[in-house]
Design a protein around this nucleic acid. Structure first.
Lengths: 211, 211
DNA sequence: TTGCTTACTTAACGCTGTTAAGTCTGGAGT
DNA sequence: ACTCCAGACTTAACAGCGTTAAGTAAGCAA
């Protein structure tokens, strides 16, 4: 019984890892059960002993990606415990870097088509919302300390999230104008996104209008 | 000869229109050549008489979407000829509304997977960049009139573009927190995005820091 | 030795994009 | 009027897809 579970667990892990590697090397589009099976040296139907369907396999991988992202964001927040604004900037940077560093995760976590996204169980998705809450909490803390001007932290966090996702998505699409420097683009996105929330220090030179 | 071309043209149009309808009703994922064929009452291989491949068919549709979007943005710009800031806001709103109003176009134009995007011919994509240029031109005009503060119009336009895409993408994904009001979210994205570029009028109350 | 459980495979179904080959129709040329 | 050809379209097929049902081989308990 324990032997079985260990072996089951092993194969399950191998399937997940191999799938991830295939996503890196060939992308989601050309991912197939038979390819995964070939790569691990089993028949395609063996995968169904560990995952209900291809969707379920991808969903398991999405969950792992969400968890890894949460760890990343949480440790960034930890590292900037004392400075809310630095924390916020670092979290934005962390969001974008996560996408750049883990394109295979990012693709399945955020770049599936709407119909595919809808198949990701809502209950599993709720857990993934912790990631947004790291931003929400930071905004709230900044607002309480009068360092940030935030009307509705949840709406603001969603808007920041959207802007960051758009940036990663554009970077992935290879459709950006070649004259645009990657780093300048990323910096611009972050500063453009955050500037409107940061309360000006005394004697700031540029003003802001209510749009 | 002319008869032939007319008929060819007719069927080509019918294929494009039918494909668009199928995208609306069933989404890109379940689009298939055989379904399109069934819907127009021809065999699947007939489509290949007018399009080299499924990709080519989708690319033709993408081009039509890009053209339609350009017309939309251009007429918005025209309508706000005299007021740069109002024009910019309206263009942002127009971008998002285009996505909401034409999800089938938006899905194939901006939500394909990176590998699929890469197959869209670069030469055809160059024409689609006109859309970004509407924003670039507006930013440049605003900067010249000292109404906007823009370091690099192309980078800034790309960053704005990214934020708007992120917003549409998040709206489509059905993953937004139910407590977030749709309209409040859209307004927040636009104001968050533009506020950092708008030069404050005299006596503005809130300042801005250099992020 | 029998029989059961577990881990796995093979064969098959209906679907996919795509190619090659075939059919049918209408009109031009003689 | 008959032949021939071009054009528009279809059928059949291939390899691959996700998935299911049925089968097999090994190990272990009785």
């Amino acid at each position: 019984m324990e032997e079985k579970q260990r072996m089951n667990g092993d194969l399950r892990r191998r399937i997940l890892d191999t799938t991830r590697h295939l996503l890196v090397s060939e992308g989601y589009n050309s991912l197939s059960m038979r390819k995964i099976a070939r790569a691990i040296g089993y028949s395609a139907t063996s995968i169904y002993l560990h995952f209900e369907s291809k969707d379920a396999l991808v969903h398991a991988l999405i969950e792992e990606g969400m968890a890894q992202k949460y760890e990343t964001l949480r440790s960034i927040a930890e590292a900037h415990r004392e400075d809310v604004i630095a924390r916020l900037k670092a979290l934005c940077r962390g969001y974008i870097d996560f996408g750049i560093d883990n394109p295979e995760y990012y693709e399945i976590m955020y770049m599936l088509h709407p119909e595919q996204m809808a198949r990701f169980p809502a209950e599993k998705y709720r857990r993934a919302r912790r990631n947004l809450e790291v931003i929400v909490d930071t905004l709230r803390e900044g607002a309480e300390g009068k360092l940030l001007y935030v009307e509705d932290p949840l709406v603001a966090a969603s808007a920041i999230w959207a802007a960051l996702h758009g940036a990663v998505s554009l970077l992935f699409s290879r459709r950006m104008d070649v004259r645009v420097d990657r780093e300048a683009f990323i910096d611009t996105v972050i500063s453009q996104t955050l500037r409107s929330y940061i309360v000006a220090p005394e004697g700031a030179d540029a003003g802001v209008s209510t749009v």
